[in-house]
Simulated assay, not measured.
Amino acid sequence: MNLQISAAVERWPVAGQFVIARGAKTHVDVLVAAARCNGAIGMGEGTAIYYLQETAEKGVSQIEGVMEVLSGLDPRAAREALQQLLPPGVARNALDCALWDLEASLAGKPLWQLAGLATPPQPLQTAFTISLGEPDVMEADAAKASARGFGLLKLKLTGEGDRDRVAAVRRGAPMARLIVDANESWGGLDIEAEAHALAALGVEMIEQPVAVGQETLLDGVSAPVPFLADESCQSRAELDLCARHFDGINIKLDKTGGLTEALALAREAQARDLKLMVGCMLSTSLGIAPAWLAAQGAIWVDLDGPALLARDREDGFTFEGGKIIPA
């Protein structure tokens, strides 16, 4: 078996700015992995997790470090070995997904069948992210997103003035469903009161209200909407913690380190009656494609990464009527 692996960094501009509590982005650097064998090629993409101090360049070095070990293996064996060779993160995600894609190509089967889906994947309603900003700016952005057909909006919050921001978005998009990402910022707030206030504005889910390591702040909180873990849930290793303190988890392939772990995490989370969300980082449609498969059974889908870019790859997903639709 002559498995050839390569990796490179690509830069893609953001449409305007993407702003969260930790800062603003005008572009995203993605790690693209390619796996070749017997004339077939598989491609995968990952985005570095900034709060874990990852970079796309470090991801290239990680992949280069395992190329020789994997070169004598078939794609499935290489993918299985990869789970131990690299930690969860951008490098393993990009290469794991490339190996899945290669395996499907060699087998002459669609990836969804290899991934164990019972039926072909369908278009999904996806959230559209409203970047953090002043209430009037977020109100205008929400109105624009609603006019584009997005009926599910995800608001980035910061722990200060969040009620005003949500109220403004509600004015801008009065018929939209709302979910919010607190980005670990509610540790100093009355979490229960904040949750009730946002629920009264129509918010149906709150993501990561407290910082990693402060999950016990959620104990005893009686909230009218579910709390979902994002930063607190990187992989199956955190499921026990999440089951104690949260109502569900947000699965992102860049966190789990690929489709392999994402599928396993989804199965085990559902077995624990945890609610599922599948999200993404800023990315092109190449990075979203395997996440779209993992999202088929999720309650909330947040795969708007390509819709936030100034341009996407050719033959990428389209976004129509608030849904993510394959080419």
Rank of each mutant, 00 (worst) to 15 (best):
G257A: 05
R236P: 02
A266K: 12
G220F: 13
G279Y: 09
W300L: 06
K255E: 09
V221W: 04
S222A: 15
D273A: 15
C280W: 13
D247M: 05
D302L: 02
D230I: 15
G279W: 10
R244T: 06
T260W: 06
K252M: 13
L239R: 10
I251L: 14
L276D: 04
G297T: 07
R311Q: 14
L253R: 02
T260F: 08
A307L: 12
E261N: 10
D240V: 14
L286V: 10
A291W: 05
G248H: 05
Q270E: 13
S285I: 11
A223Q: 11
S283R: 04
G257L: 03
Q234P: 08
E261V: 11
R311T: 03
R313A: 01
S222H: 14
D230L: 15
P290M: 07
A289S: 12
L228R: 00
L253T: 05
F227V: 14
A307F: 08
H245W: 10
C280L: 13
L259I: 15
A271F: 00
V221M: 06
Q234R: 15
D230E: 10
A223R: 08
R244W: 05
L286R: 09
G297F: 00
A243L: 06
A291Y: 07
L259Y: 14
V221R: 11
A271D: 08
G287E: 06
L308G: 00
A298I: 02
E238N: 15
L241N: 14
A262L: 01
S285Q: 12
G248A: 08
I251V: 15
A269I: 01
D312Y: 14
F227S: 03
L293Y: 04
E268Y: 01
G305K: 07
G257S: 04
F246A: 01
L253V: 08
